[in-house]
Each structure stands twice: as C-alpha cells, then as structure tokens.
Design a protein around this nucleic acid. Sequence first.
DNA 1: AGCACGCCGACT
DNA 2: GTCGGCGTGCTC
Length: 736
Amino acid sequence: MPNADPILRVAIPSPLYRSFDYLPPADRATPGTVGARVLVPFGRTQKVGVVLETASSSELPPERLKRAVTVIDREPLLPPDLMRLGRWLADYYKQPVGEAFAALFPTLLRQGQAATVRGEPMWRLTEAGRRTRPETIKGASRQAQLLAVLHQQPKGVTQAQLGSTHSGWRAPLDALARKGLAVREYKPCLPEGPLASPGPAPEPTDEQARAIGTLRERLKGFNVTLVEGVTGSGKTEVYLALMEKALGAGRQVLMLVPEIGLTPQLIERVQKRLGRPIAVLHSALTDRERLCAWSAAREGQIEIVLGTRSAVFTPLARPGLLLVDEEHDGSYKQQDGLRYHARDVAVLRASQLDIPIVLGSATPSLETLRNVETGRYGRVVLSERATGASMPRLGLLDVRHQRLEAGLSGPLLTHIDDHLQRGGQVLLFLNRRGYSPVLLCHDCGGTAHCPRCDALMTFHRGSETLRCHHCGGERPLPSRCPDCGGGELVAVGQGTERLEEALTERFGVNTVVRIDRDTTRRKGALEQQLDRARSGQARILIGTQMLAKGHDFPGITLVGIVDADSGLFAVDLRATEHLAQQIVQVIGRAGRAERPGEALIQTHLPDHPLLRTLLNEGYDGFARDALIERREAGMPPFASQALFRAEAVKRGAPEAFLEAARAVLQTHAATNVSIIGPIPAPMERRAGRYRHQLILHTDSRRELHETLTRSVPLIAELRESRSVRWSLDVDPMELY
DNA sequence: AGCACGCCGACT
DNA sequence: GTCGGCGTGCTC
C-alpha cells in the first residue's frame, strides 16, 4: 500500500545547490501545496522554505525524512509565474534554488510572517478619548499614563513603539478600549483609495503621437520595444499613455526606474496623470510597507507598481504591461548575492507572462541595441524635444598646451563668462569628488596610500582629511610628509571641491553650488542644493554623476565636461560605453528651455574616435561603431561571459581557490568555452582583502550554461572555498 | 550560511 | 585549571 503522505520538495535558503524533501506536517488540515511557504527543521535550526513540488517518493530513505513544522500559507503564495521565475533565476544565475526563491520575497515573508495587506497594529484615541483628560481617570494610573501618551500622538502609536517604551501596555489599553476611549486599528500602509479623476494629458507632439500609436498596437502578447528618446523628448508621456491604455483594460502595470530616477516629481506625475493610487517600492520603505505593497499587488488591490531593481519580483494578479525606464542604467544590476539584472529579468518575466514590455533610454545599452538589430526587439524613436527646444550644440575643447586653472581651460572660462552674462546657468561635470585625487610630497615624491587598498587616498580639503574612495577609510590630513618630514604637500589633480574653490574665487560665493556625495550626505541636503540650483540663486553647478541624470535644470545653457580623458584610458570593456552615455546624459541637461544650449568637452585627445563620432553622429553613431568593434573583438553582446570572483584576507587564498575551480571547470567545460585566469583583480587589494578572478568566455551561451551547471555545485564544495569569499557573476557588467 | 563539535593558547 | 580561537562536518 503506497504511503498516503505526499512528499514536499522544498527550496530552503542556504548555499546548498539542491532542494530538500519533507513529510507534510502532523496537522493534516494543512498538507502544503506548491508555492506555499513551510516552516521546516533544518539542521539544528528552523527555516522558511517554499514548496517547489509535491512528489510521491523521495530519493532519501523514509526514516531520514523529517516532518515540516507548519505550512505557513494555506494557498500558494507565489503564483505559477513567479514559481517559474524562481527556477529560472536559480538556473540562469547558477545560484542555489533556495537563495533564488528567497530573493522573490520581501523580508517579512522571508521570515515567515503572514502575507497581509494590513499595516502595523496601532492604537489611537477615539473622539471620546480626545475629550477625556488623563487626570480624570482615577485608580488606574497605567490607563491614565497611556491615555496621556496617546494624547501626545494624535495620529496614533504603533504597538512596536509602545512595546519599546511602555512594557505591559496591553491590559490598560484594552481597558481604555472597553471604555470607548481608545481604539486599535491598522496603520494604513497603502496609498489612499481612488484619487481625483485622472489629470489631463498634454497634447502630444506628432512624434509622440506616432510612438504612442505604434506602441498601443503592440499592447497584446509578449513583445519587447525599445523607446529611444533624446533627453526631453517626453518618454514619460509615452509611458503614461501606454499605462493608461493597459489600466483601461483592467490590467496592472509594473514600472522599473533606476535608483536615482525614483523622484517625488515622477511619483506625483504618474499619480496625477493616471488618477489612481500607486505602490512605490524604494529603499526607504519599512519592511512592513514593502510587505503591504507586495501583497496588495498580488491580490490585485493596487494597479500600478513603481519601483527600483527588486520591484521586478512583485507578483501581479492581472499583469498587463512592464516598463523599464533608463534601461541602460547600471543600478539595475544587483552586485551581490543573486547577481541578477532587473532589465533582463523583466524581459524574461514579460515573456513568461505573455505581456508586452517597453524599455526606454536616451542612451540604450549595446545589448539592447543588438537585440533591436537582430529584430528580437522593436524600436520607436523620439528624436525631437517635446518642448521644441533644440539639442545643445556640442563642441570639443582641445586643452593641449593650454594653461589650466583648477582643470579649467581659458576658453571654457570665457564661455562660462559669456553664458553667465547672458543670464544662463552653467553645469560643470567632473566625476571625481574631493579636492585632489593625489597628495604628493614635494621633497620625496611620496604619496598617501590607503593601508587597506591598492589605491591612493583622495585629499578632502573641507574636512582636512585623506579618504579612500574604495573602502571608505579616512585619516586626518598630515601637516608634514610621514616619510621624510617634508613640509610641502602638493595637491595634484582636480576634484569637485577644488573646482568649487576656483570658481567661487572667480565668480563669488553664492554663485556656485556643488552637488556630490559629500555635499548631499545630510538628510534633505540634496533637495536644498537642488533648490539653490533650480531657483537660479546659484548660477554655476558643479557635480559628479549624481547630477548627470534625473534632475531637471531648465536654466542651464552651458554644460562643460571638465575631463573626458580619464574615461578614455580605462581598461574596462564597458568604460567607453559608460563614458559616452554619461556625456550624452549630462549634455541633455542643457537647453531644455527655449534658450539654445551649448556643451563643451575638454580633452587632450580631440582626435579620439569615440569623441569624434559622438560629436558628429551622436550616441547612435557611437553605438553603431562600438557594436562593430565588439563584434570584431568577439566581446559581449556577441559573446557570453561569466566571472568568478574570490577574495580573502590571506594572500594567495583567492588564487588557490580559483585554480581549483579552474581544474573543475576544465574537466567539465564544453568545447567552445575558454577559461581565462585566475588573474588578480584590477585593484588586487581592497578593504584589506586580496582579490582574484576567473573569466569564462564563449560564443555559445548554451555551452557556457552547460559548463556552469555541471561545475558550480562541485566548485561550491571545494575545500579551498572555505578560506575565501567567492561569487559567480553571469553576464558581469564590470571586471573589478 | 548557520551551528556544533573538537582540539590547542593566554587568562580569571 | 577554564574561556575561546577557527578547522571541518552537516543540513531532507
């Protein structure tokens, strides 16, 4: 007679590359079902896992199977599409299946809490309670005390807050509730129900109307469309028109934006225009709020989800449309744990859901452009600015033989003068914060090295410190050279701080605003600085990449790229792509209003092909050339790569591990996979750890995956892996 | 990853 | 004499 108990095959978060079999819990009422979470004994602890499948038998002898403690979800928590997605993630990124599934959940669900759209339990006063003065409650001092607490918090106090400061609050509050003075309710954690009717749509330009028309026709079944639109061309308006249509058909929309792009302005615009509540998923949410939004989207209670990278895993009851804004943005790539790329996951999800997906960018990634080239993706172009403003005039400033003042050439300073005099604002882009990247002893030539990294420390003048931008290390500025005692320390090279100093000296204190991580660290500081820029109070804006995207400064007529050269020398494959994107994005800040803009790039290499192409043919020309180059060099997107990284405090350990990994890979490698390394990371020592890497390279994605599928579980079990921290990155974005 | 077991140095 | 260092073995 077959055993009546079905076996639960469970994905458990652990670095082990397999699932685990359990018997259903003793409680027959909840046998467990695919997609439900279960609490199971695991080693000496308990873990929350997801039921992958039910089976009639296990490879393990029955006596070794343990019983699950409880089934947490009566019904599947993960819909079938997310079950498929979890398996795909594990398989594609070669991560343990339990880790892949854990990534699908917000923290509280990972910890085993119930899936609910209810917010935190909290207490507040009733109308009667508000009229009752605490001192009128006689003979119940605790009740009086808590009444006073609630009086001070008219919006209510969460139980968590009470628990930390007023232990034993339960009984007195229950008593107050019985008297009708206080009431327990759930803190609202979703945006309030239907807003006012949808706002008016601005009249689209002809180009926008054509784009919307094309895209609306594609709003059926799976397809991918790139919306390639120059800065200011009104991509967002196109998105909104599409969202409107999908919502009108009763479907939900999921929109991904880069971290920096999730601004209050965008949220407000979406909300006003579509007239419906949206769930916004960003890093500042509490765990509870995340859970709430996740559950509401799963139940179909909310129709628009707007979020950063991890929002791609939000379950949708009635999926209709996915959007990925600024699809080229690096923040879509998770750089630890499950190293997924949210854009790629989004495309996969759309295909699994059989719904359309739109990727938007002014500077699309070469991967996406390649997919357009092969016809896998459709493409819609917005080449005109919706405001009617023209794109800025672009020029190179040859700085060879020029005297530079804090890195600024005479001609650039003259242009700054001109634009200021004509009432324009100026943006200077320098992607290097601090005063100078090098502090040099004039007597012995010594420089300040970070003790924990293979890197020089950056001189920060304002705080009188030397800081390492790689590990965050900091030390006070020495007054004399620690090596030779020399008293003359020279700041070599420019950072934004020095640029600010030079410009302040020339144009006056209130004219200049610097926006980088150092000036915006304080809460609210970024908004304050941006206000100074937008209001026109500051006429010259200095900034790092923080300033390059997302923010609008209508008054800017001149953009100066202070230093394009450092990006031209970088070793990384994608460095030039990033430089081109960065330049184009920064340039897009100029001339958004009626006034024509101008953008000037300072360089010592005015004949560099990248700069010439960018100048003459724009980003499209650059991308076309870059794709030709990549094809000839056999590099991505014409090849597939995977990267093993290893690091350890002990020198030699990472290399030894990767050598062992290489041996495993070699015995299992498919024919067309080449293995490069182990080689030291470009910066071998960082934050006190030595780092090596091993690269797999091939034309055949399929063979890469076969090789990895066979090898990775074995590599994870190598003895050498114990003495290092290692990770595998499939489709790495950068080699570091 | 956790967690426990197990065998060698500086401390109340 | 013990507390605790991290090597190594295991997780249905």
